[in-house]
């Protein structure tokens, strides 16, 4: 267990190093931050002076070393626009985004498993065919279109659901503004979460169905039938457990990917999260904020993947986590 953790932490550090290097190096290609920082009236000489002062004229490696040294102390630079530490600006928006992802993940987990399993057990039933048909549509419709469609139907036409913002939030753990504890907050979560889930849900249904169908063909499932076990035990223990192992691995990666997808969803729903903020930062060429966003998202990726590997190792007996009994 300890060895496994150390290995994963080392891997995580390497990945974070690469992410920081890449995100830092793209900032050169994002345009001139000075244009945003100072007005048109400032002369070219003064601009050069400012650039020197900010270290923008130093060689790349010197700039990166300075950046990395500060980053290790939690300082990812100061947002040009907010004039506040970039990391703080991002982290303030983190709860909104994570709750969006959490809501979508819950929807995906609660629906994909029963639907995927059912359509694997009864592949020829009308319901399974309908599920498969809808999942194709779900995959092919872009997220923003789904979002706009949902807003049009449920907010504008029917007036059931709010169309933008987070609604009422409550403060939990001191710093985390949560929408999960008020009716208004939950109502605001519904449509954005559905939109965010709309791509991944069909993918997961199809993945679970395909895995399950393969497992149902396996010798050990045939042997389970030959033992005279009940269909319930065969489907939901013998087959499902083996089906979910690969799904967990893919699922972890997808949750990370979903954090990136929030950019679209948050923009359509004007959801005050990191993704929305990121798009604004790109418009304003707020380089430190962009870099900070990329690094935070990268960190989320690394953390979820490590957790998923850990869970996978715990549920799959054929993986040896040293020290696991």
């Amino acid at each position: 267990m300890i060895a496994f953790l150390i290995k994963r932490v080392v891997q995580a550090i390497i990945v974070m190093f690469v992410i920081s290097l890449v995100s830092f190096s793209i900032q050169d290609n994002l345009g001139d931050p000075l244009r945003e920082l100072v007005g048109q009236s400032v002369s070219e000489a003064e601009r050069q002076e400012l650039r020197d002062e900010m270290g923008l004229n130093d060689p790349f490696l010197v700039q990166y070393a300075r950046f990395a040294k500060n980053a290790l102390q939690g300082d990812l630079g100061t947002s040009y626009f907010f004039k506040e530490p970039a990391l703080e600006v991002i982290l303030k928006k983190l709860p909104a985004t994570l709750e969006l992802v959490l809501g979508a993940t819950l929807i995906i987990m609660l629906l994909s498993v029963p639907l995927g399993v059912y359509s694997a057990i009864k592949p020829y039933s009308l319901f399974s065919r309908a599920v498969m048909g809808f999942s194709i549509i779900g995959i092919s419709v872009p997220v923003f279109l789904t979002a706009i469609g949902l807003i049009y139907l449920f907010s504008i036409e029917l007036g059931w659901m709010p169309s933008f913002g987070r609604g009422e939030t409550t403060q939990i753990l001191g710093f985390w503004g949560s929408g999960f504890f008020t009716a208004d907050g939950l109502a605001h979560l519904v449509l954005p979460c559905i939109s965010l889930a709309s791509i991944m849900l069909p993918l997961f249904i199809r993945l679970i169905r395909a895995e399950m169908m393969e497992v149902l063909q396996s010798e050990y499932v045939k042997f389970a039938w030959a033992k005279g076990l009940s269909p319930r035990r065969i489907y939901f223990l013998h087959a499902l457990k083996n089906t979910m192992l690969p799904v967990i691995t893919v699922g972890g990666v997808q949750i990370g990917t979903m954090v990136a997808y929030t950019i679209l969803t948050e923009t359509v729903f004007q959801w005050p999260g990191m993704g929305f903020l990121f798009l604004e930062a790109v418009n304003r060429v707020d380089t430190p904020l962009i870099v900070a966003y990329l690094i935070v998202v990268g960190a989320i990726f690394v953390v979820t993947n490590t957790l998923v590997d850990l869970i996978y190792g715990l549920v799959n007996p054929t993986v040896k986590l040293a020290g696991k009994k």
């Binding site: 010798e219 050990y220 042997f223 033992k227 005279g228 013998h238 054929t318």
Partner: peptide
């Protein structure tokens, strides 16, 4: 099945559930 008539399969590497 498994009670009055049982079956032994060919490949023991595949017959038992790995998990």
């Amino acid at each position: 099945r498994g009670n009055r008539i049982s079956m032994i399969f060919q490949d023991p590497m595949m017959t038992l559930n790995p998990v």
